[in-house]
Design a protein around this nucleic acid. Structure first.
Lengths: 188, 188
DNA sequence: TTGGAAAACTAACAAGTGTTAGTTAGTTTT
DNA sequence: AAAACTAACTAACACTTGTTAGTTTTCCAA
């Protein structure tokens, strides 16, 4: 593991625990036993940590949803795989996920605009699956935007309660979520 | 409107837009055309803004769920009303909601502990409704904790996209969410 | 063994932080 | 008219912030 990776990893951990703004370069430095100024031999700025993390995870998610659209044909299958990929990506690195879900707001103006654009695009890919399901006659006539936001809310929230050492593993979480979203809570 | 309320309202607006940590007392002061030091004639500290807001909304939600448990008897009805109350409380003041959902992390240690305790209690009330539904034979045999977290995630996320001037009003949002949660996306 | 890059250090800067002290003008109560 | 209260002010404190400059140490390839 390079020194840069070590710094990034440590920084992400602190930022998840205390928040991005509340984590100072001196905090990060002392966690890897060096001086704040020395960090700049490895990273360009504090914001670079946020940028690399947010856009890195964005790319992972984009690749995931593109794969789904290439391979599967019916909406229920697509949705199941999209959920699976999303949960895998998020639970892979909870520290990074926290920055992705919560701290992107603190990106500088132009980076934030870029980020929102990519997030909206990802959201649209999800929405298209819901719409496809309706066109297939398999899904109810729900408001696609509303449904998509509700689904993504459930997915993103997993990062708040998932514990790697807990009893529920990402695969199982994805399956339960898929089932919950597709068929709801009530017996019929 | 008292000066205090004016300050609180303005502060909440800024904190939603820029984040709690990123909003300085000087920012708040200049937004109400006074000096930072003068704010202390009306509020005790910066944290008081966060405390009052988080615990105020917590109380509103607690009252709401208690009412539901007193009045209604079957789980589906209880859940519908609980969702309705929750959405009403959150959409009532989006600025306050933002602090409640996102910024409570920045409460001081003891206040944060109190907050988490009350939030967990509220969560438990929701969970009990899900459990009741299963005992009635009306709900599926889902993991109650998992289901509750997923439901609350959907509810809390509404604050991210709801716009008072938009076409969907709180009552309608609550109804759609209830329907979505109870019966899911797929036709049967 | 040596030359040079990589990676650490110290010191400092300029700006911003929440908050307190002390003061003053204007209003209300005694 | 005197006293007390309210709400504003200026000035300052003590500290933290991200970052840069300049210097020294570490370490590996030739």
């Amino acid at each position: 593991m390079t020194r840069r990776q070590e710094i990034m990893g440590t920084a992400l951990g602190l930022m998840r625990k205390k928040g991005y703004l509340n984590t100072s370069m001196r905090d990060i430095a002392s966690s890897v036993n060096m001086e704040a100024a020395s960090l700049y031999n490895h990273i360009k700025s504090k914001e670079e940590i946020l940028i690399d993390t947010c856009f890195g995870l964005a790319e992972t998610l984009e690749i995931g949803i593109k794969e789904v659209n290439d391979i599967y044909f019916n909406a229920a299958e697509k949705l199941a795989m999209a959920i699976h990929n999303h949960i895998q990506a998020l639970t892979q690195d909870l520290n990074a996920s926290h920055l992705f879900v919560h701290e992107w707001r603190h990106l500088s103006d132009d980076k934030r605009a870029q980020f929102i654009q990519r997030r909206d695009l990802y959201e649209k890919e999800f929405r298209d699956i819901v719409i496809l399901g309706f066109e297939e006659g398999e899904f109810k006539d729900v408001d696609p935007k509303f449904a998509t936001l509700t689904i993504l809310a459930s997915l993103n929230w997993v990062g708040e309660w998932y514990r790697p050492q807990g009893e529920m593993q990402p695969k199982e979480i994805a399956e339960k979520l898929t089932h919950f979203i597709l068929s709801g809570l009530q017996k019929n």
